[in-house]
Design a protein around this nucleic acid. Structure first.
Length: 421
RNA sequence: GGGGGAAUGUCCCGAGCGGCAAAGGGGGCGGACUGUAAAUCCGCUGGCUUAGCCUUCGUAGGUUCGAGUCCUACUUCCCCCA
């Protein structure tokens, strides 16, 4: 369906469309009417494959938040406590490793708390509800499930779905357990409708097939009309997948990625992405965003700071965002070591004995091995207290401490303070 | 069941006459230029106590002074025939 010509009547869809959250929708008008009436209960499912969500998930969390703050209805984040045990084959060319149930439960527990920063939970009409499909999926009886639910699935149609077709065309293995994933996800939709009157599922564009399968199952099993809404896959202006680097994903949990590094991630956004990111990842009014987006040349950096501050405040709180901004200002604009940079400590005795520079950088986690440290020295990438390291045999000692710490830097952006204890 | 092919630097893709720490990409990291951006150019991209040593080419053996390369068995994947 074309989204361009559509004129939404609900604040919810208006916000989503204006800000660029919508990729595909099964029925914009129908969804719009329900949101206008404030009756749109919608869910998004989250896999429990890692102990933290990352920026890729943020887009969908924002959608749930918009649903609540525009009064369009009730958001339901669904933990995939059950479906993660099976594994989603969508967009994967290989069978995913099966996680142990203990790992899944641990991940689930870690993931849950992010949502409290974006949603208000409770029993009220617009209050969010946390669900977990392990609650119903693990209790299913195989025979009953096949009779009640399985008979509604057409294998012929499932074979034609992208996620399945891709594997078959490439002659890659698609195990039975994965083939069942979409049945379970479809059943989730029906179950959430029964439990909470949920009528819409949102998600990334890769989830379209799974969502539509759920709608179809709902029709056959007698639910009211269900709706699908997907968000675009995010890439940076230069075409790279967003939020994934070799160093790791941009996690939302502070113990997986510090608020300072999270702030830096947004601060380093490409020029061409700033406007889009402001619309998608902050709640700033659109006219304000339009003003920031127009800044040219070096002034765009002001917009990037706003982006970094707001995006960090949403996930880690305003205080952490301010601290990160202040640390960055001192580090980059004044060249002073701020006290809040990531810190490591070494025993005082070790420092007094003279700690090798290479070892120090490895300890700080800035490089992976002394070999890498050597190479960085040759390339001029390492600095101690802002002085380039030229001699790889040099040693650090207490005499180099400035305000009780030695500042180690890799490149221009990565800094760690070394303290003695 | 029969026949043929494949597995390479623990990010990915991919070359590799028996002398190999192993071509080339992509990605990543660093440098220069800038604005903590992009683009461009340059360097790096197994480990260590670095004139040297150690460990890597699906697994296990074998031939050889020497094996990613040859032989045998096994594992996994793909193709063709039944």
């Amino acid at each position: 369906m074309s989204t361009a010509a559509f004129r939404p009547k609900s604040d919810f869809l208006a916000a989503l469309l204006e800000r660029g959250y919508v990729h595909q929708c099964s029925d914009l008008e129908g969804l719009d009417a329900r949101a206008k009436a404030g009756e749109l209960t919608a869910y998004i499912g989250y896999d429990c494959t890692a102990p933290s969500l990352h920026v890729g998930h943020l887009l969908s969390i924002m959608m749930l938040s918009w649903l609540q703050r525009t009064g369009g209805g009730k958001p339901i984040p669904l933990m995939g406590g059950g479906t993660t045990r099976v594994g989603d084959p969508s967009g994967k060319d290989e069978t995913r490793k099966i996680l142990t149930i203990e790992m899944i439960d641990a991940n689930k527990a870690a993931i849950r708390n992010v949502f409290s920063k974006f949603l208000t939970f409770g029993a009220g009409k617009n209050d969010a509800v946390m669900a977990d499909n392990a609650e119903w999926l693990t209790k299913l009886n195989y025979i009953e499930f096949l009779r009640d639910v399985g008979r509604h699935f057409s294998v012929n149609r499932m074979m034609s779905m992208d996620s399945v077709k891709l594997r078959l065309e490439r002659d890659q293995e698609l195990s039975f357990i994965e083939f069942n994933y979409m049945c379970l996800q479809a059943y989730d939709f029906v179950e959430l409708n029964r439990r909470y009157g949920c009528i819409a599922q949102m998600g990334g564009s890769d989830q379209w097939g799974n969502i539509v399968t759920g709608i179809d199952l709902g029709r056959r099993m007698g639910t009211p009309q269900l709706y699908a809404l997907t968000a675009p896959l995010l890439t940076t202006a230069s075409g790279a997948k967003m939020g994934k680097t070799a160093a790791g994903a941009v996690w939302l949990e502070a113990d997986m990625l510090s608020p300072y590094d999270y702030w830096q991630f947004w601060r380093n956004a490409e020029d061409g992405d700033v406007g889009r990111f402001l619309r998608l990842f902050t709640f700033l009014p659109l006219d304000e965003i339009a003003r920031l987006e127009k800044l040219g040349g070096a002034e765009i950096n002001e917009a990037k700071k706003v982006l970094a501050n707001d995006a960090t405040a949403l996930v880690h709180g305003a205080a952490a965002a301010d601290l990160a901004a202040e640390t960055a200002r001192k580090t980059f604009e004044e060249g002073v070591a701020a006290a809040t940079l990531p810190t490591i400590s070494v025993p005082r005795s070790e420092l007094d004995a003279g700690l090798g520079v290479l070892t120090a950088f490895v300890r700080a986690g800035l490089v992976g091995s002394t070999g890498e440290a050597r190479r960085q020295v040759k390339g001029g990438g390492l600095r101690v207290n802002d002085q380039p390291v030229t001699d790889e045999r040099a040693a650090l000692d207490a005499g180099q401490m400035v305000d009780g710490a030695i500042k180690l830097s890799l490149g221009k952006k990565k800094h760690v303070l070394l303290r003695a204890d």
